[in-house]
């Protein structure tokens, strides 16, 4: 089983806060597939810095409001 990246995120929570934007719509907006958004939400994939900024800008917040570092 691949080791999970130590990065947490609030993508699902922010989607729900922003009018239930769908995974497909968010993926289209930031230039990735729905499967990649699912992988990010499940913590199976850490997006690139560019995609992280695109996601944060989509919600009108900073990158650190979306992504966090787990543990120490």
């Amino acid at each position: 089983m691949p080791k999970r990246p130590p990065i947490t995120n609030r993508v699902r929570e922010l989607r729900e806060q922003h009018g239930q934007i769908s995974q497909q719509a968010l993926g289209d907006a930031v230039g990735v597939t729905r499967q990649t958004i699912i992988a990010i939400e499940q913590g199976r994939y850490s997006p690139s810095l560019e995609t992280s900024f695109r996601i944060a800008r989509q919600f009108g917040v900073g990158v650190e409001d979306v992504f966090g570092w787990e543990g120490e």
Partner: peptide, 11 residues
């Protein structure tokens, strides 16, 4: 639609 799309960064 998916067939036309380029692979994203994860893919």
């Amino acid at each position: 639609k998916e067939a036309q799309a380029a692979a994203d960064e994860r893919e």
